[in-house]
Design a protein around this nucleic acid. Structure first.
Lengths: 136, 136
DNA sequence: CTGTGTGCAAACACTTTGCAGGTGT
DNA sequence: ACACCTGCAAAGTGTTTGCACACAG
């Protein structure tokens, strides 16, 4: 059980709901919304429990939030983060054909010069277009 | 009445609610959420009417959506758009101290190279940090 | 055994829709 | 006069909270 080990690592108790949600996020290359997750896991898990599961994953840094262009909150694994250090300076991409959102972990956000007086602490980039599956 | 002229230009009937919302957006340099707007205009206007007003402004290209880091939808005037042509390739900035979100119209989004097969059509950048008012 | 996670019910926030009546041009 | 805008009521969706019970370590 890979998920059990991960949960232990992050000091979260291993429970069926957490394992299932985590497994889903691990095996899925796209960011998933709460409702995506709800429909893909076992019905027996309550909607509220899934919310709380995601919240606990977020607070431990196992996953991060991805906002798409319509403000829909999605979640994806933190591939580049260790427990101690977090990097989210990668680009998110939403395909307008298939609707899927993904992290382009290898595409870093360039520096952007701001006007006098502004101080940048965090950057978030969402690109929309056609993904490599839909662009033919 | 500047607002009346603008509404006419965009082929929208001039009504009290539209004028008031438009005036508010014109005189405000920050992006405003629906609830910001609701509290700042005359109580007599129904919440629903404000939603519809914003939707009509959006569809005519008078304003554009700005999403902040928490997925809150805000609205700001299109300074750079004409009726025919729309540019939104500027950076949005949210100050983590005062909470205000604004368009940095002069800060263009740099080109970002995507992996093989991806095609970019629209880019959206949100930077968080301290604005020129709060950074001292 | 103890603290944490879960399920259920309910509340809350945000946004949309249908309809009847009112208003701008 | 007519099309369009508005207000009200209601419903849909997404998310949070309180509480009693269940379960993992």
């Amino acid at each position: 059980m890979e998920t059990k080990k991960i949960l232990n690592d992050y000091k979260l108790k291993s429970t069926p709901c957490r394992s299932e949600v985590l497994q889903l996020l691990i095996s899925n290359e796209h960011a998933l919304s709460h409702s995506d997750i709800e429909t893909k896991i076992d019905d027996s898990h309550d909607r509220v429990t899934v919310y709380r599961t995601l919240k606990s994953f977020l607070s431990k840094g196992i996953i991060h939030k991805v906002l798409d262009d319509e403000g829909i909150t999605k979640y994806a694994l933190c591939h580049e983060c260790s427990k101690e250090e977090h990097h989210h300076e990668h680009v998110h991409f939403k395909c307008e054909h298939c609707g899927q959102t993904q992290c382009l972990d290898n595409v870093k956000i360039p520096d952007i010069a701001l006007p006098q007086g502004f101080k940048s602490k965090e950057k978030n980039v969402l690109i929309q277009g056609l993904c490599n599956q839909c662009n033919n």
